[in-house]
Structures are given as structure tokens and as C-alpha cells.
Design a protein around this nucleic acid. Structure first.
Lengths: 120, 120, 120, 120
DNA sequence: GTGGTCTAGACCACT
DNA sequence: GTGGTCTAGACCACA
């Protein structure tokens, strides 16, 4: 997991989001283990506490579970669960804001989408 | 200017964004004065320094100019300038991220847009 | 006296400096009157108090004197007096700072002066 | 960093200028950290917020970057960048004014420079 | 009246 | 430990 951090959001959140993404897209599968805090910390050159914070969030949200002495494992059903949750969040929170932003800036939606339509 | 603050971003930034919005939509016009720091502070029940911080940003970005002893005034050309700047920012930064998010979550674009199409 | 104000120094100081300059370069001569506060204020679209402040400085420095009921008049000997004073101030305060700035920025003096030498 | 404040410009600006100077002259090098806000505040007997204000300017100007939770570090390339910027500012803004001042006061340039020539 | 600066002290998020 | 934000209250320069 190679990464470049951007300054605007806390590292632990960026890391959290990355793990989420990798679970959704199948890079990390149900039942698989996450890299250990130490491994991760070494690889990403990051303070272990920061890693822990991200991992803690994943536990709090029931996405991974701790197996004592072994590490953290992706729970069964987690990928779908995440996908559904993120979709809902996007549709109910992000998208309305995006739409209002678009109309506020007087941007033409069709123009935004034309490149995509062409792909079809 | 009635307002409800949300916790996730600093007040001075929210205030800054609000002024920007009110300039874009024409509530505050070119050459007009912003409400004085003290007025604003009293009205919004906020520390004057917090207001100053927002106003300072607007000066730094050449959106507003100080007339010594009189107050802050919207510079001529500012509304268009802001609009262009925000549009560009949206198209080059926000929108690509939104698109990648949409494809990442495997969301159907037509579904997103159906409510809008119906408006037409 | 047509003028464009710049924001970085107070108007009354800019005005003061202008009068000084016009006395040095002979536009306003010994014994001549300054435009009245009111005239000046109307012409420059400036608060009369601001004009007064500049005029007061000129009185304090014995450059002009009040003739009751008539106005302010440039004292005899004022032009030379100013010239000497400003020269001294420049040589003892400004110039040393300029020199240190030049060396700090590692600027070549000859390069600065080449355009001038050519004039000769 | 020992300092004596002068009254005519705000402390945070003087501090800002000092840091700039120390970066140009190599006392603070690329990649190095600035003294922490608290350290500086204690050392200079100044309110931390005042320090922050100076540091904020340095960030806004891309001279220094924040490493979250670690402190502020001089960006690579910053020293040259600053030097170039300051030189340009001097040549395009300060120097012309100086020259006009010199001619206005009818000062002989060679006389100004004679002490320097002798150094050679 | 206007905005700008500074202090003292508190609280927060991040690493 | 780091910087960022906010408050309450004071003082100043400017018009």
C-alpha cells in the first residue's frame, strides 16, 4: 500500500478511507487479515498510533474484528455492507450538496456529463 | 445574515464562504460595503476577531478592499472573478473526485440524474 | 493637486509628503498660501479632518505658519530647511538600510547604476 | 533568536521578516523545522497567537509546510524562491522610488557610493 | 464610526 | 509534543 498524503484531512482518516476502498474493490477480501499495525507503520513511515486510530474506527464500525493474538480480520459481509452504507451516504449527503453547488455556480450538467455519455 | 453554524469547519471559514456566496448571488454587489466587523459580531453573536479573520481572507484574495476608516468594500469585477475561480476549482478538483467516487461505488449516473431530467 | 492614494500609508501622511514635495520642487513658493482645508477637501474628496491633520504637522514642524483669518503660508526659508532636513534623514536613516538590504539580497550595485551612468 | 522590537510595524510582521532573513542567509536551512510556536513564544516573551500569525503567513506563501503534529518545516527550494522574489520586489518597487527620492533631494549618487568604491 | 493588533487563557485535533 | 480556533477584553491608528 503505497501512498501520498494530502494535507487537508488527517492521516488516520485518509488511511481509513484507503482500507475501505481496498475492501470494496476486492484487494482485501472477506476473512483476510489487515497488515499489522507495526508492518503498516514501517511501510508507510507513519506513527503507529495513527495506524491504530484508523484500525480502531474500522473495529468500531464492525468492518473488521480482532482475533486475539492474531490481528484484525475483515468480517464476512463487510464489503457489501460498506458499499451499501457509502452509497447511501453519498446519495443522501454528498450528492444534494454537489447539485446545489452546481446550480450555485451556474454550471451546465449536460456539459459535465458529455464525456461520460460518449464512453457508452 | 442569519446563520446556523456547523461544527466541522471553523466559523471564520464558514463566514468567508457565506460572504462569497452572497457576492456571487448578488445579495452583496460590487462597490457595496460589507457589514462592519462590530455589526456582524453583534448580529451573529461571535467574537469580532473571528469576523476579522474571514474579512482578512477576503482582502488577501483581492475580493474586497479596505477604505481606511470607512470599512470594507467589494471590488469591482469581484463577483465574476469569484465565479470563474470557483467554477475552475470545481471542474478541475471536485468533479473528478466525484466521478471517481461514483464509479468506485458503482452508482448509476442516470439514476442520479433522473430527478433533474423530470424537472425539464 | 490631483492624486491617487495608495493603501499602505495613511492618507494624511501621503498628503503631508506631497505638500513637502511641492515646496521643495518650487510648485509652492515661500510666502505663498496653501489651499484652504475646505478647498483641498472638496478637490481631493477627502474628509477635512484628514487635511487638517496634515496641515497641523506642517505647522508643528515650522514649515508653514498660520495667519489668523487668512490661512496657512509657507515660511521664509522653509524650502531650504526642508531640503536639508530630508537629505540628512535620507543619508543617516534610509540609505544605510538600503545598503544593508542590497547586500542582504546579494544585489550588484553596478548593475543598479548602469542605467544612470549611461544617461551621463 | 534574540530580538529587539521596534514599534512602527506589528510584531508578527517583524517576526515574519526575521524568519525570512534567517532562511535567506542560511541560518535556517531547507527541510529544517522552525522553532515551535510555544518555544518561540516563551523565548521571545510573546503571545503564541502572535507567533502563529507570522507562521501562518509563511505557510500561505508556501515557504514553510506543516507536518501534522510535528511542526513547520522549510520547503525545499524556499530559500532561492524567497531570494528571487525579494530581489524582484526591490528592483521593481523600492529602487525606482529610491532613485526618484535621490533626484528629488538633489543628492549626488557618486557621493553616496564613494565609501563603497573605496572598499574595493 | 472603521479595521488592526495584542494579551491571557481555554479547548481541540493530530501525531 | 505539534499547530489551530475561539473568547473576552483592551488599546491604537485612521477618517
Amino acid at each position: 500500500m503505497t501512498t501520498q498524503w494530502h494535507a487537508d484531512s488527517p492521516i488516520y482518516l485518509q488511511l481509513y478511507q484507503q482500507v475501505i476502498t481496498r475492501i470494496i474493490d476486492g484487494h482485501i477480501k472477506e476473512g483476510e487479515a489487515l497488515p499489522s499495525v507495526r508492518t503498516m507503520a514501517a511501510e508507510l513511515q507513519i506513527n503507529p498510533i495513527t495506524i491504530s486510530k484508523a484500525y480502531q474506527m474500522l473495529q468500531d464500525e464492525q468492518i473488521v474484528e480482532k482475533q486475539r493474538g492474531k490481528g484484525l480480520f475483515v468480517k464476512t459481509g463487510a464489503p457489501e455492507k460498506i458499499l451499501v452504507r457509502e452509497k447511501q451516504a453519498f446519495l443522501s449527503k454528498d450528492w444534494p450538496q454537489i447539485m446545489s453547488q452546481i446550480s450555485r455556480l451556474n454550471i451546465d450538467i449536460d456539459e459535465l456529463l458529455s464525456p461520460i455519455k460518449e464512453e457508452k
